[in-house]
């Protein structure tokens, strides 16, 4: 269960809008110009207590103090090894078979 409130000193993640759509660089392509430039950073909560969505201060590992909206308490890494991909299983099998036939060719 994710705790509903973060306490001072807890590892959290915040986000902040850096540039609104109308402030973006002139060379940005159309689709990107429609959305803001957003920043996320993690650190230790400075406030006594906060809920997701609150404006909070954190101290990052590099020692910076940053203000932003709390988006996660004790954030976890979500990337992984992916799903089973049938195409990969297929080629792995082909390489094993190919190895067998090349080795046989050598033994003869």
């Amino acid at each position: 269960m994710i705790a509903l409130k973060a306490k001072k000193g807890q590892w959290v993640q915040i986000h902040k809008v850096v540039l609104n759509p109308e402030e973006r660089a002139p060379q940005v392509p159309e689709d990107t110009k429609l959305v803001p430039l957003v920043m996320r950073v993690k650190g230790y909560l400075i406030d006594e207590e906060a809920s997701v969505g609150d404006l909070v201060s954190i101290e990052t590992v590099a020692g910076r103090k940053v203000v932003g909206r709390l988006i996660a308490i004790e954030p976890t890494y979500t990337h992984n090894f992916g799903k089973h991909v049938p195409v990969l299983a297929e080629i792995d099998r082909e390489f094993s078979q190919l190895a067998d036939s090349l080795n046989e060719g050598e033994e003869k």
Partner: peptide
């Protein structure tokens, strides 16, 4: 400290 940004040359 990893400062993560959304897409863009900014």
């Amino acid at each position: 400290e990893v400062v993560q940004l959304s897409v863009g040359p900014e």
